[in-house]
């Protein structure tokens, strides 16, 4: 059941840029190197007010999930300031090596626990 949810979420995330009504990329679910991390464009763009090129200029390709194909897409590089770690460094946002379950949703692939689903 939960795995299905994750699969659906992944499909949605891939399809999102084409159908998205909003002017951002929606939810992106990373499954490598571990399952799963949910990146919410809504949270980062709408609520936190980040502009597209803050990340998409250099850190992340516009194509969703391209980053996770790279061999250095690991927690170790994040801590060293790459990818998410560019902001999640303890000064701009919480450090990459803390608050693990804030981004990691696990194999069960629960969404961002903000809604009242459970």
């Amino acid at each position: 059941m939960n795995k299905h949810c994750a699969t659906i979420a992944i499909c949605l995330a891939i399809a999102m840029p084409a159908v998205a009504a909003e002017n951002h990329g929606g939810d992106v679910v990373y499954t490598k190197p571990v399952k799963s991390v949910l990146f919410s464009h809504k949270l980062h763009v709408e609520e936190k007010g980040l502009s597209c090129d803050m990340c998409h200029a250099r850190t992340f390709d516009m194509q969703a999930l391209k980053a996770q194909e790279n061999a250095d897409f690991t927690m170790k590089s994040l801590v060293e300031g790459k990818y998410c770690g560019a902001c999640h460094n303890g000064t701009m946002a919480f450090a990459s090596n803390t608050r693990c379950a804030a981004c990691h949703t696990g194999v069960k692939g629960g969404g961002p626990p903000r809604g009242g689903k459970h």
């Binding site: 608050r99 379950a101 804030a102 696990g106 626990p113």
Partner: peptide, 17 residues
């Protein structure tokens, strides 16, 4: 097994395993 605990109204982190 990994159990999941969610607290949507928690301050800060809202989920733990």
């Amino acid at each position: 097994r990994i159990l999941m605990k969610e607290m949507p109204d928690a301050v800060g982190l809202k989920r733990e395993f």
